[in-house]
């Protein structure tokens, strides 16, 4: 034995593989356990306190009255508005993302695949705020959308859309339609990528087998491709739905300035100083996402995983 150099450390861990795993996992476990779950728990706790209306101080006593405030008309309208917006953004993202993801997974090869990744990822490289303000200019009454519509003699169509009750407004940048467009733009990559990953994992022979067994392309799409892509679409919808539920910047910059959950939390914890109500508002998206996941699981969205 001449070549063997003593490596007591390596030998020690070789005999105790579990210990090495533990050492590697300890920092992330501490992070998740204390920093992440701990703060989440603190948040949850806050939502069961209430604000003393006279002193403006937080009463550290357990009560459900803060949650009761959520059901008041103005607060409930915020919840409803946000959930409807998130649902609309998610559905639109799924519909827009699917053909792009399908093309990338099935047909794009070599340079066209590289181009796809570049096109999907590049918007994520630039600042979120810059993009939102850019959209403000694009959608403004003096912006390029109005200009193009007028050049195409479609100004009347834009006016008709803006004249719609509730969703319309004086211009796209000051309407729910504008908020919706920007939300879809900002979150679309988060829908495309998981959908594309799910479609990529569908073997070509499954599609051939379906055709071989007599299914037309439409039937194959409904019975094989869509069910197998569903976990990806659900994963994407978790992103688009929860990101829209929590966003507080876009509704402040683009739209009719009516509050969403995010902007309400921002206002409550800042100027209003009502931490318990802010916490209660924050709990709502968590509960909605929990219910959503359970329903998706019941419907078999994860069967193909």
């Amino acid at each position: 034995m001449t070549a063997a150099v003593a490596r007591p450390g390596s030998d020690f861990f070789f005999r105790r593989p579990g210990l090495l795993t533990l050492i590697f996992l300890l920092p992330p476990l501490l992070w998740i356990g204390i920093v992440y779950l701990g703060s989440l728990f603190a948040l949850l706790l806050q939502s069961f306190y209430s604000l003393d209306e006279f002193s403006g101080l937080v009463l550290h006593e357990f009560t459900l009255s803060t949650y009761g405030h959520l059901l008041e008309y103005s607060n409930f309208a915020i919840l409803l508005r946000t959930v409807l917006m998130a649902a609309a953004v998610t559905i639109a993202s799924a519909i827009l993302a699917f053909p792009i993801a399908y093309y990338a997974a099935r047909y794009a090869r070599g340079w066209s695949k590289a181009l796809f990744y570049l096109a999907v990822m590049m918007p994520l490289w630039s600042s979120y705020l810059v993009k939102v303000y850019a959209w403000k200019l694009i959608l403004a009454k003096e912006g390029i959308v109005t200009w193009v519509a007028n050049q195409l003699y479609l100004g009347w169509l834009l006016d008709a859309v803006l004249a719609l009750p509730t969703v319309g407004g004086p211009s796209l940048s000051i309407s729910y339609i504008g908020t919706f467009i920007v939300f879809v733009y900002i979150w679309l990559p988060y829908m495309i990528l998981p959908t594309q990953a799910a479609l990529e994992r569908v073997p070509k022979t499954l599609i051939e087998a379906s055709a071989d067994l007599g299914a037309t392309p439409g039937q194959t799409f409904r019975t094989v491709i869509l069910p197998l892509a569903l976990p990806g679409i659900v994963a994407g919808s978790i992103f688009t739905f929860s990101l829209t539920l929590g966003d507080y910047i876009i509704p402040q910059i683009i739209g009719n300035s009516r509050p969403f959950i995010g902007s309400t939390v921002y206002a409550l914890q800042g100027t209003a100083g009502d931490i318990p109500l802010a916490a209660a508002f924050t709990v709502v998206p968590i509960v909605i996402m929990g219910i959503y996941l359970v329903v998706a699981r019941r419907m078999g969205a994860f069967d193909a995983l």
Partner: peptide, 25 residues
């Protein structure tokens, strides 16, 4: 009809649903 080299069974269906697939179509 074809028996594929990798079998190409539909992973999201049971064995019975796989076999009945052509009939369902």
């Amino acid at each position: 009809n074809t028996v594929f080299q990798d079998y190409a069974l539909f992973p999201h269906m049971t064995v019975g649903e796989n076999v009945a697939y052509g009939l369902m179509i």
